[in-house]
Amino acid sequence: MSELIPSRKDENYRYTQIPLSSEGWLPESLANCEATKESFHAWTSDFYIPALKGVEVQKLIPSREAQKNNEWIFLRSESSDSKASSKKYRGALEFVVPKGKSYKVFEFLESNAESSLLMRSIRVEEGAELEYFVYQNQALNHEFVLRHFVDLAPSAKASMRFFHKGSQRGQHRVAARIAKDAEFLLEGATHLEASQHIDVWAEMQHEGATSLSQTTVWNVLLDQASAVFNGMIRILKNCPQTKAYQSNKTLLLSEKARVSTIPKLEISTDDVKCSHGASVSTLDPDQLFYLRSRGISRESAQDMLVEAFTMPVLQHVPKCLLSEHEQASLGLKGDSHVF
């Protein structure tokens, strides 16, 4: 329980702006939505996956058709026109990618509710593959807590990408357990303005030899926006030849924008390769000059460079699942980006 629900004393939460009530990290409107330590499933018993009291866990089972064609499975947490009266939204979901299968999941978060608390627990079985994209563009007064627990069996492969553009405040925690020969790629981006705040947690727990994790989070921060990157690489005993890399890159477009990068390492095996990196930059004057020297206005040139910064993530968004409007706002409309 203590690991689950931090208090203000916990130094990990020093930087976050998520309000901490006595119940823990929940936005106030969700305070009665208690986390418990009941686990979702037997296989998670030693991994603290929280369940939400009173929330039914949904199971995601892709259609045979979708599986056969390796189509994107479209997860829409709440449609924008759902009960206008519901101010809070809670959801829990779990699924397993069975042995030898390969799933692609697109999670689209666009709730108009005041706040949301979403838990996802995902098991990728031996040799299975998962590609997952989380696209968050919720109303600008929204507050959210989002958790992805990813459990990778030996030789499983998963890539998870996220893009946070909406919400007033939010915390997104991705925790992975990575078994022998398994690989986890986490690539995320935030694009925040006004007083938006996003707190990202990336916790990679390596539990087997020759496992790999690679985490990169790009932040674009305007105005007084702020972002936190909490990175943890934990390598348990007897995990030789493990590689784990984390990096956080921030494009600061205002003097009042803030980023805090908090990297942590806990390594109990000798023969491993690990790295943490963080960089903060502003727009590159040479790049701006190059674009402007071809007649591109200063504003367009800036927009292009900002888009380019998060392009490593956005180039993977399943464009076909976004509305025209959404694509245009990302600079992805038509073939404007030929990726």
Partner: peptide
């Protein structure tokens, strides 16, 4: 330019179209 700067994430096609549209 003698040393044209690299701009990862902006494709050549997008760049050329934007430049020509602007001009």
């Amino acid at each position: 330019m003698q040393h044209p700067v690299a701009i990862p994430g902006v494709s050549v096609g997008n760049f050329l179209r934007t430049a020509l549209k602007n001009v």
